[in-house]
Design a protein around this nucleic acid. Structure first.
Lengths: 138, 138
DNA sequence: ATGTAAATCGTAAATATTACGTTTTATAAT
DNA sequence: ATTATAAAACGTAATATTTACGATTTACAT
């Protein structure tokens, strides 16, 4: 999911192509890791000093809704990253310090045989947490 | 992990055996599901109308620290449940409406061959979310 | 150039969690 | 049983995260 594709897709749905949305996706591309809303706000404020919370949160939700970013939460915060371009479903090693990820080409759902009785599955999460090489140094 | 065992264990560590802690573990036993701090507070206030947030949060942290409860988070809230008495490591189907769980006797970490390079693993999460039979009715 | 709906701003409200000085209480020693 | 003391709880405030909303600005189709 690159910036142009993401924003053009939104435009086709009737949303506007704004500089702030463009920058948000750019930052996700550049950082290539999970970001909190606060981190995103801080990066954005370098270019838009008076940016409001509303804009960041609203756009994060919009991006999530249309599959531009994927979200998870740890340490009491929601975190967002650009949706993986890999077309196969997979999971991640996540550095809980910096948010960087490494893909795991394995989904435990494949090992779940049949449907559980009396339970409608809506989603699942498989995440391995830890510290990446960079963060271990410091 | 039953009430008596849990509280006696704490006592040996130098913590006091209080009616509030006893009731908290009782509620966890009775409910047998993930509870938010708020839900716990509300249950507790039936017997202790002036109970403060501090007590609930402090004791939840204490319980987590000593393995009496296990915690996770979804929908922007931390949730706690009595630590599973099963001595084998396992995971859960979780009803995101009521917090009830069903054990899955499977851990995807077994399929992760070897240690990832340049990454120190500190934990992992495998959870399947959905709606249980009870909650699907309503 | 203009109309209109969407986006953003500025700010406040809502929600969840943590913190802290004071008072109360469980517990062990006397 | 009384007392000392350290932990627990109270009452309340502070902090952090997320959401909400009326007013203003902007993108963009006409």
């Amino acid at each position: 999911m690159d910036t142009a594709t993401a924003l053009e897709m939104l435009k086709k749905k009737g949303y506007k192509y704004t500089g702030k949305r463009e920058m948000m996706v750019h930052i996700f591309e550049r950082e290539a890791r999970y970001l909190s809303a606060k981190e995103m706000l801080e990066y954005m404020q370098q270019d838009y000093p008076s940016l409001s919370f509303d804009t960041v949160y609203r756009n994060l939700s919009l991006f999530e809704q249309y599959g531009i970013v994927e979200a998870t939460e740890w340490s009491g915060e929601k975190k967002y990253r650009l949706a993986c371009s890999a077309n196969n479903h997979h999971h991640h090693l996540i550095c809980t310090t910096c948010g960087r990820t490494t893909a795991i080409d394995l989904c435990p759902m494949n090992a779940i045989l049949g449907e559980p009785k009396n339970f409608e599955i809506t989603g699942h999460k498989f995440e391995i947490y830890g510290h990446c090489g960079e963060c271990m140094k410091s």
